[in-house]
């Protein structure tokens, strides 16, 4: 009897301590995530300048959004810039395949391709802004050597988006490459052996062994790239400070930021963020569903 009481006192005490430890992250989550989230849902139904108290206006922000041409253009620009994702992924897979072979200098090249990833995005954006300069830029100097008269990349509606895509592909390639490399090295050798015994050629092995085995990494990269891509901001703000020629490179987050901090329309900006958040959530949910349907196991 007495042992049981003692144990339960101990048990209760330990539980109390445990609860306090558990409370830490829970309180943090509530204060820094749940509360701002709920507040932003509320703020998106208000007219709010970010300084004084918000005034409830119902659906007015969402109605305004529907007829705001810059909202739609910023959405379209953001979507367009995501063309860089498949390009970047294919290139980084190619690189990973190349660097996965046993040859001299692979470590060197892996480092070289990874350097952009660890560089500050702001510094990199400034360097690319110079590289894209119409007159003195490195890119046009290189093009001039092969006789092409390059455009003024960032000042031209037709070239500003491709310019930013080129830059972001370059910046993100090392990261995807590294993940692909790790995945390639964990593909079991015996699968290739079995495939070649069955008479599969190199291409068939790639299609039927390598690609399926890389699927989880590809899935992860696609999901995170789309989430990251929908929030592209720093590159835009530094390389094309006014949203680019005729608003051609303004991303949705850039537009939200401008509305919130330059034009004192925090309520409207919040409602746009909410819509963006819901879209990203929906797209990610769809991706997870599709992925589950295509799942398979080698066991």
């Amino acid at each position: 009897m007495s042992t049981i009481t003692r144990r339960s006192t101990l048990h209760r005490k330990e539980q109390r301590v445990a609860l306090i430890f558990v409370a830490l992250p829970v309180i943090g989550f509530a204060v820094f995530t749940i509360f701002p989230l709920l507040f932003s849902v509320y703020a998106s139904f208000t007219e709010w300048n970010g300084i004084s108290a918000p005034v409830f206006t119902g659906l007015a922000n969402f109605q305004a959004m529907m007829v705001d041409p810059y909202f739609w253009q910023a959405m379209w620009n953001t979507l367009f810039l995501m063309i860089g994702i498949p390009i970047g992924l294919s290139l980084s897979l190619l690189l990973a395949l190349a660097l996965n072979r046993k040859m001299r200098g692979t470590t060197f090249f892996r480092t070289v391709y990874y350097v952009p990833v660890i560089s500050s995005i702001a510094a990199v954006a400034i360097l690319w802004q110079w590289a894209f300069n119409g007159d003195f830029g490195l890119i046009n100097q290189a093009l001039a050597m092969i006789g092409i008269d390059g455009p003024n990349w960032l000042a031209n509606t037709a070239t500003v988006k491709p310019a930013i895509i080129i830059m972001s592909v370059w910046k993100g390639m090392g990261y995807s490459m590294l993940l692909y490399l790790a995945a390639l090295q964990s593909v079991p050798r015996h699968l290739y052996e079995a495939a070649s015994l069955d008479g599969a050629g190199v291409l068939q092995q790639f299609r039927n062994v390598t690609l399926p085995m890389l699927r989880p990494v590809t899935f992860f990269l696609v999901v995170t790239s789309i989430i990251g891509g929908s929030q592209i901001f720093i590159e835009i703000n530094i390389m094309t400070p006014g949203g680019g020629p005729e608003f051609a490179s303004a991303s949705i987050v850039w537009y939200i930021w401008q509305k919130a901090f330059n034009y004192l329309q925090m309520g409207y900006a919040t409602s746009m963020s909410l819509v963006l958040g819901l879209i990203v959530f929906a797209v990610t949910a769809i991706q997870f569903r599709l992925n589950r349907r295509n799942q398979f196991s080698i066991d």
Partner: peptide, 18 residues
Amino acid sequence: SRFKTGIVAAVAAAGLLL
């Protein structure tokens, strides 16, 4: 020592809030 850890956790939680 258990008492101490409890205090530490409580202080940390309070610090987080304050």
